[in-house]
Design a protein around this nucleic acid. Sequence first.
DNA 1: TGACAGCTCAGACGAAATGTCTTAACCTTG
DNA 2: CAAGGTTAAGACATTTCGTCTGAGCTGTCA
Lengths: 133, 133
Amino acid sequence: MARTPQDITDAELAVLEALWERGPATIRQLTDALYPDGGAAQYATVQKLLERLEAKGGVRRNRQAAVHVFAAVLDREQLIGRRLRAMADQLCGGSLTPLLTHLVQTTKLSPEQRQELRALIESADRPTRKERS
Amino acid sequence: MARTPQDITDAELAVLEALWERGPATIRQLTDALYPDGGAAQYATVQKLLERLEAKGGVRRNRQAAVHVFAAVLDREQLIGRRLRAMADQLCGGSLTPLLTHLVQTTKLSPEQRQELRALIESADRPTRKERS
DNA sequence: TGACAGCTCAGACGAAATGTCTTAACCTTG
DNA sequence: CAAGGTTAAGACATTTCGTCTGAGCTGTCA
């Protein structure tokens, strides 16, 4: 049976997280962060991971300088969204609603969080109206 | 970098889905459903997948008859929950709240769904009170 | 100038995960 | 009894993903 390649792999995610944490960075900087005692091979690993991330639209490369600087395009929120959508596609015929329902039923929310959620539901009402006008 | 093995793999999920759809079944039945033109090798594949699912707690095997009957232990809802939790662990420091927030912000809900969600939030209030008493 | 270090580019390779297959033994049925 | 179906065990093949090597270019320093 066909397997589904991962969208953003674990190692790619580690690179993304390093970019989220420190902002735009060079391969050298990322390698030192991810592999403190790394050698040439690890530099090349990070390079390859960035290349794949770039191909997937997860990072952008600035080639202006001789040493390229990479920045995250995909932030945590967006990645969460991608993963939720992929899960909905696989398990819920594409609908996000079962995921939402499940979370509401199982997540222990503080009164503050509940209020926040109610506000989100109400504000979710309003953009819809604006979109109509 | 270490990779994370999948909880329930794609092929295992296909087996689970067949069980969800038809209820308890034998290897023969599942093989015929999943591999209509399958031979002995496909029978063995399904057997192995079931064995792994059993080890993961996803299915239960009834050995009373000579021919074993398998039933899903893990239903779709539970699998969704497992995956959401895994996602929260990986992307949100373990908190489900960001996932919930994201879904509320991005899911286009009908008025009925919104009302349903409000009701869920309110009912989520009440069990909490019962649990205190 | 030459050597060296750092960088980019390209692609092969190694390891891990996962799906597939083979073999042997046992049981039931015709 | 032979054949077919089943279980059990484990090896094997394929795919995915992380790692590594080699070549070429540039800039710096002795």
